[in-house]
Design a protein around this nucleic acid. Structure first.
Length: 465
RNA sequence: GGACAGGUGGCCGAGCGGCUGAAGGCGUCGGUUUGCUAAACCGAUAUACGGGAUUUCCCCGUAUCGCGGGUUCGAAUCCCGCCCUGUCCGCCA
């Protein structure tokens, strides 16, 4: 959420930001509602102050009269009753006026709030302007020894690569038919060495973050209340993307949602808290199952392990002081962690600076990491795919947007309370990462070599098949 | 799932219709005393929103005692609904 005061002072900044992101927001309506709201609030508060004053004044008088009334008779009694009625009537007009204003406030406040939640974080000044992913800017590429993603696979390795679908089928690593039988499209079953490899990469990534980088190992809920989804910025925009558990329809409790990333649980941890300065930066990592409806992605990446409804992900989250330099510094570090893993896995990848049009509502800067997947991309003359980069990681800087929604604050060196800055980045998502892993490390004989660092997690095996 | 009990400030805990943004204690911070530490003593110690100003932290107002609604001139205090926690019973991965 943006700071409404900042919006009042400089609405242009937010209008331009939304335009750069290609998002429509009812700014005019927001401004109008905000003005109305403030006016009503001010009215109500003034009247209520008056009402409180009167109450305080007449309270003791009324007590006294009521006391006298007990023993009063005849004309005396009538006089006292009249006095009492007069006192009681004094705040009635105010009370009615307040009720009217409050009703008006209650009418506009939900809409004011709803629009406010849709205003996106403006992009950072140095994020390239663009309409969508086609305008993202490649920053750099990395290739493992003996392989160059810019050249055809077969020319370098001496055989035509199989796609991960073929490898998975031949090596019996996954069973899509039975996955679909049980749960429908975009579901799968990991089998045998497929499941073991899945567990190995997750465990490797998780240990890497905790043991080598000092992140706190955390297990968080993947079933959360709506306020967690709103607080982390996934709702309202991403409502269609989340599985909804309609508990309220059963007559009790509140509805719940399945999280699409461990970020929700990790960021929700400290919602509504004021942290001491020395608690920062928070560095959390979790491994969690992620659920995504993939609404609107019909027909896209329908086969295989690329776009699925349920997967596991090691996520990293940092909450630091409200300082742009710190945020940028952590962003680089968090991307560096991913690069280290990919390099140890010997997977070719590239970094993309996402343009304004490819950013989400909540981030001001995003860098995607894409691994080279020989089985992706357009078909060549032989009718086989020629390979392409595919997104495996995404590193965002959110400034204070998320912490403001979550009401996550800290006390700075001057004792001032501020909303913290947040960042998040994938450490590793599987089974998607298995696609480049299998495809890049496949051998001429149809087996798949296991990178050195993963062998301890695979019972010492050096290959599959 | 059933039966009780209960949800008050950073924490413990009092209050059960106006004098209570809230006693007392602990903690924290500042100060005095002290050779140092400790102790003792003194003082301070919520947040949000709105308005104002001599706009860096000063004043005024409003709200907040789990959440929402109601009664009342006035609610932490009474009533209703919900959520949550504890204890016991049942069930169970």
């Amino acid at each position: 959420m943006i700071d409404i005061k900042a919006f009042r002072e400089d609405p242009t900044r937010f209008r331009d930001g939304a335009a750069a992101k290609g998002m429509h927001v009812e700014f005019d309506r927001l401004t109008a509602l905000d003005e109305q709201r403030r006016k009503l609030l001010s009215e109500i508060e003034t009247k209520r102050a008056e009402q409180n004053r009167i109450s305080k004044e007449i309270g003791p008088q009324m007590g006294k009269i009521k006391g006298q009334l007990k023993s009063a008779q005849g004309a005396d009694r009538e006089r006292l009753e009249a006095e009492l009625a007069e006192l009681e009537a004094r705040p009635v007009k105010l009370k009615n006026e307040i009720a009217v204003s409050e009703r008006m406030l209650n009418d506009i406040e939900p809409e004011w709030q709803a629009i406010l939640l849709t205003v996106p974080q403006p992009p950072a000044h140095d994020v390239p302007r663009g309409a969508g992913s086609e305008d993202n800017v490649q920053m750099r590429t990395w290739n493992p020894k003996g392989f160059d993603a810019s050249k055809p696979f077969a020319a370098q390795r001496g055989f035509a690569p199989k796609t991960h679908l073929e490898l998975v089928r031949d090596l019996k690593l996954a069973d899509f038919e039975r996955g679909v039988k049980m749960s429908g499209t975009r579901h799968y079953v990991l089998t045998g060495m497929g499941m073991r490899l899945h567990q190995a990469v997750l465990r490797y990534a998780f240990d890497f973050m905790t043991q080598e980088n000092g992140f706190s190992a955390t297990g968080v809920p993947v079933i959360v209340k709506e306020e967690c989804m709103v607080g982390t910025g996934f709702f309202p925009a991403g409502r269609e993307q989340a599985y909804h558990i309609a508990e309220s329809a059963r007559g009790s409790g509140h509805d719940l949602y399945l999280t699409g990333t461990g970020e929700v649980g990790l960021m929700g941890l400290h919602a509504d808290e004021i942290l001491p300065l020395d608690a920062l930066p928070l560095r959390y990592t979790t491994v969690s199952t992620c659920f995504r409806r993939e609404a609107g992605a019909a027909g896209k990446d329908t086969a295989g392990l690329y776009r699925i409804h349920q997967f596991d992900k090691v996520e990293q989250v940092v909450v630091c002081e409200a300082d742009d330099a710190q945020s940028r510094d952590w962003h680089k570090k968090m991307i560096g962690f991913v690069e280290t893993i990919l390099q140890r896995f010997e997977l070719p990848y590239r970094l993309l600076q996402c343009c304004t049009g490819d950013l989400g509502v909540k981030n001001e800067d995003m860098i995607d990491i894409e691994c080279w997947m020989p089985g992706r991309g357009d078909d060549g003359p032989d009718g086989r795919p020629t390979g392409a980069y595919g997104e495996t990681h995404s590193a965002s800087r959110l400034a204070d947007y998320q912490c403001r929604r979550l009401n996550l604050r800290y006390r700075d060196g001057d004792g001032k309370i501020r909303h913290a800055f947040a960042l998040n980045n994938t450490v590793l998502a599987s089974p998607r990462i298995l696609i480049p892993l299998l495809e890049i490390h496949q051998q001429a004989d149809g087996s798949v070599r296991i990178p050195d660092v993963l062998r301890p997690h695979m019972g010492g095996l050096d290959r599959i098949g």
